[in-house]
Computed example of a mutant assay.
Amino acid sequence: MAASELFGQRGRLFAGILLCCLLAGMMVWAGTTTDDPLEHQYPTDVEVTPTPETYVGEQVVLGGQIVDTDPVVIATRASGYGRFLLVDANDQVQNVDGALETGDHVTVFGTLTDEEALVVEHGLTQNPDDRGYMFLVSILGGLLVAGRFLNGWRFDRKALAFVPRSKAGSRGNEDAKARSQLDGENEVDRNTQPTPNIKRGGR
């Protein structure tokens, strides 16, 4: 193996490892820097629901299902436990489907004014079907891209690189063509060889 080829393989391997490390680092960095109050480390309904009196006067994030719309009340537990009145929910909660309705899932950010009331500063509705649809489309798109890529490329373990499959196919076709041509030449040579004269002996 040539020194330049060996260096090229090591360079590609090093570049691949470096890119993976950079990707992981950017994912961690992106996950820790956000301006959305719903993504900050404020107390959530998991912490607030058991002891709401502890968080009165603090900014919290509550998520749950709307159980009443006049006024808007949510339950942070599926059993209906952990009910909070959402003040100004109709004005502050972003809902593309229109007015808030019973059964909608919401996540709200605001100040807990007492043990059962939250003044909403920002909020949004969440449709469970939307998340499933997003994951399904992402998976199908990834499989489609991977399939098209693998259909045209293959991984060469010796070169530590992806190479077009057409190269391997054309190389095999060239080899087969060369063998066929060589067989044809051999056949021509055999046909052009002089036939030895056979003398018949007399009695």
Rank of each mutant, 00 (worst) to 15 (best):
L13K: 03
G123E: 05
D175F: 09
D97E: 11
L124P: 02
T54E: 15
N127H: 06
P194W: 10
F162H: 00
G141R: 02
G57W: 11
N197A: 04
L19I: 05
E185W: 15
G63W: 07
T125W: 02
T44E: 10
Q181F: 09
M27I: 14
P194Q: 09
T111P: 12
W153N: 02
L124T: 13
G57F: 14
A168M: 03
G11M: 07
A146E: 03
L19R: 11
G169S: 04
L23K: 11
A15D: 11
R154H: 06
N186M: 12
T69M: 06
V119W: 06
K167P: 02
A161E: 13
K199I: 05
V46H: 15
R203T: 00
D114H: 11
T113S: 15
S166V: 11
G184R: 15
T111D: 08
G142P: 03
A75E: 08
C21M: 13
S170K: 12
W29E: 00
A161Y: 04
R131F: 15
L62E: 10
I74M: 10
D104T: 04
E185C: 13
P52A: 09
K158S: 04
V120I: 12
R12M: 00
P128M: 04
D104F: 14
T195W: 08
L112P: 11
A146L: 07
A89I: 07
A3I: 03
D175K: 10
V106L: 08
E53M: 08
F14D: 01
T34I: 04
P128A: 00
P71H: 03
D36E: 08
E115K: 08
V67A: 05
N151A: 04
T113F: 10
R157S: 03
Y55F: 15
Q41T: 13
L85A: 12
G80P: 09
E174T: 04
L18K: 11
I17L: 14
R77S: 09
G31L: 03
R77D: 08
R171E: 13
I66W: 01
G11A: 05
E39K: 12
L19C: 12
V119F: 08
R148N: 04
Y42V: 07
N186R: 15
T76N: 14
R77I: 03
V56D: 09
F155E: 00
G110D: 06
I74P: 09
I139S: 03
R12C: 01
L86S: 13
T44R: 15
T76P: 02
H105V: 11
V163T: 00
I66P: 01
F7G: 01
P128Y: 08
F14M: 04
